[in-house]
Design a protein around this nucleic acid. Structure first.
Length: 589
DNA sequence: TGTTTGCGGGG
DNA sequence: GTGTACGCAAACA
């Protein structure tokens, strides 16, 4: 048995002899950064059962065939409650049995029955994707469902833990396809792929069937060969991250369909698996096992506020330069005409280089969010910020011994929808040019209010006798003691941010300084997300009372501050939520 | 005024 | 995958 260290990139589970096997994909840090798959056969799924009566509940669960059970005390929205931790042999048992368990006479409720198995593993083992982890293991000749001879295989035979190390120089590969499109948007049913551009740290090239006079073009025989070569590059390079722009919904589905039509078998995954496209509601997501595929389009939509999110627009916004562009509907002409073809090659190369540059700029923040939230970058890059906050809280709940509330049912969801908390106080700006303006604003107003007023679903009370903070306008009461779950978590985030900022100030190394800056930025984003999620209708810790109380206190504070300023002779010209602008008149208004 | 539908990105 | 999912503007009733 030896100790291994690896940077965790991807995680999944497979079934072997009817048992689940967790597989961790990453780069070996105890070796020479080579690809490694570590697998763990010892982890089992479980849910929490809240009984009316513990003994009869255990009996009823035994009758259902639940073998392993443990009685625990956990906190449920502030109240200590006995729970039964019921273990299953396989994740697929959970959806099969949970409704029957929920409907047992002795059962009050069930919890944490919808946590994907790989997420449960990350949370329970306190390990973080894009960070280094350490484990005891033994090298194996083979691993469950792995058909590859170029990856190190290790069975986990001892404890898994985080080393706390986070630095790892990222290996990013970007890609972009071009198709011949004589009738508008290309359709994979009839329109061939003519180019695939790829770019890494110190190379960029275009794979195509033409263009052999250009040094950046790799010429291959036919379309099937373009696709095969692309999959081969991914398989051989095994980059940490593969990025595209709208690649979830365009490039990858297109490549997959063309490969299918042409009869090309693709296996770019570390385990020899192919391109997997999954339906996620309306949109798709596409994954390659081992390599983290990040579609920058949803990332950029969340990252900045623009009218449009075309690659051109986003690139201009980030770098202040124009990208080489061609009219999209005429690209096929550029391919067909000898005098225009070189421009199409340049366009392809420019697109893929732009994608790479955007990735270099944007991924660090997503890496840090991944490290803080503790879910895979693949998921984080596709999650709404509210979801990121929620998964962060699910992890914290496990750490604190708190039960995670269930997701809202369809009826709860539709009831919540449409209800909106009143927002911040706004005083419409006075028209005109104002001179000698003074400005005031609160630093992170809402997070501070949540902490100072202890606003949390588990501190909300109807007890008129309690020692409470009472919300203005609404009169909602929040216990002063003990500290609520969400205020504690926000407090943790903010003090961690203070620590990181201090370290940043002390640091002399510019690279380290930059990393620490991104770290504190990620923490700031997470803290600022927390106030909004109380009113987010899919949120597990949803509470309209909390959402309303926060903004009510916010309005109260800003209005009182404005009043005080006016008593000193200031005149407010404009105010919004957490700050205001004023002129000095010297007169009390 | 409230409710339903359609779209974004990609070539 | 312990699945089934966004958010907004425009069009419509």
């Amino acid at each position: 048995m030896e100790t291994y260290r690896m940077v965790l990139l991807d995680i999944d589970y497979v079934t072997c002899d009817e048992k689940p096997v967790i597989r961790l994909f990453g780069k070996d840090k105890s070796g020479d950064n080579e690809p490694i798959i570590a697998f763990d056969t010892s982890f089992r799924p479980y849910i929490y059962v809240l009984p009316h009566d513990t003994d009869s509940c255990i009996r009823e669960l035994e009758e259902l065939g639940i073998g392993k059970m443990e009685v625990l005390e956990m906190r449920d929205l502030g109240r200590m409650t006995p729970v039964i931790r019921a273990e299953f042999s396989h994740p697929s048992e959970v959806p099969k049995l949970r409704d029957r368990i929920r409907n047992l006479d002795s059962v009050r409720d069930i919890r944490e029955h919808d946590i994907p198995f790989y997420r449960r593993y990350l949370i329970d083992k306190s390990i973080f994707p894009m960070s280094e982890l350490e484990f005891q293991g033994e090298v194996r000749e083979s691993a469950p469902l792995v058909e590859a001879d170029d990856v190190k295989l290790v069975e986990i035979t001892g404890e898994v833990s985080s080393t706390g190390q986070g630095t790892h120089e990222l290996d990013i590969l970007s890609f972009d396809i071009e198709a011949r499109n004589p009738h508008g948007m290309p359709s994979p049913e009839e329109d061939e792929i003519i180019m695939i551009g790829v770019a890494g740290r110190d190379f960029s090239r275009v794979i195509s069937t033409r263009g052999d006079h250009l040094d950046y073009v790799e010429v291959v025989d036919d379309e099937a060969e373009i696709i095969r070569r692309f999959a081969e590059i991914i398989r051989e390079e095994k980059p940490d991250i593969l990025v595209g722009y709208n690649s979830d919904n365009f490039d990858f589905p297109y490549i997959s369909r063309r490969a299918e039509i042409l009869g090309v078998d693709l296996n770019p995954g570390w385990d020899g698996s192919g391109i997997r496209t999954m339906r996620r509601g309306f949109a798709n997501s596409t994954a390659i096992r081992g390599t983290v595929h990040v579609d920058l389009y949803p990332v950029m939509r969340r990252y900045m506020n623009l009218d449009r999110y075309t690659l051109e627009r986003v690139y201009r916004e980030l770098f202040g330069e124009e990208k080489f562009d061609l009219p999209g509907d005429r690209l096929w002409e550029y391919w067909d005409r000898d005098d225009l073809r070189d421009e199409l090659f340049r366009y392809s190369l420019d697109d893929v280089t732009a994608t790479y540059r955007i990735a270099e700029k944007i991924l660090p923040l997503n890496m840090e969010l991944t490290r803080v939230v503790g879910q895979p970058l693949f998921d984080i890059s596709r999650m709404a910020t509210g979801q990121q906050a929620e998964w962060f809280l699910v992890r914290k709940a496990h750490q604190y011994g708190e039960l995670v509330p269930n997701k809202p049912s369809q009826s709860e969801f539709s009831e919540r929808r449409g209800r909106r908390a009143v927002g911040g106080y706004v005083k419409e700006p006075e028209k005109g040019l104002h001179e000698n303006i003074v400005q005031f604003d609160f630093r992170s107003l809402y997070p501070s209010i949540i902490i100072s007023k202890n606003i949390s679903p588990d501190t909300l009370t109807t007890d008129p006798e309690c020692d409470c903070h009472v919300a203005p306008e609404y009169g909602y009461r929040f216990l002063k003691e003990p500290r609520g779950f969400i205020p504690s978590v926000i407090g943790e985030i903010l003090s961690e941010r203070v620590r990181v900022k201090g370290e940043m100030k002390r640091s002399k190394d510019p690279v380290e300084k930059k990393l620490l800056n991104v770290q504190q930025e990620a923490l700031k984003r997470l803290a600022n997300t927390m106030y909004g999620v109380y009113g987010y209708s899919r949120f597990r810790w949803y509470s309209m009372e909390c959402a309303e109380a926060i903004t009510a206190w916010g309005r109260d504070y800003i209005k009182r501050t404005i009043r005080m300023a006016e008593d000193f002779g200031f005149h407010t010209v404009y105010a919004d939520t957490d700050g205001f602008y004023a002129t000095y008149t010297g007169r009390k208004s």
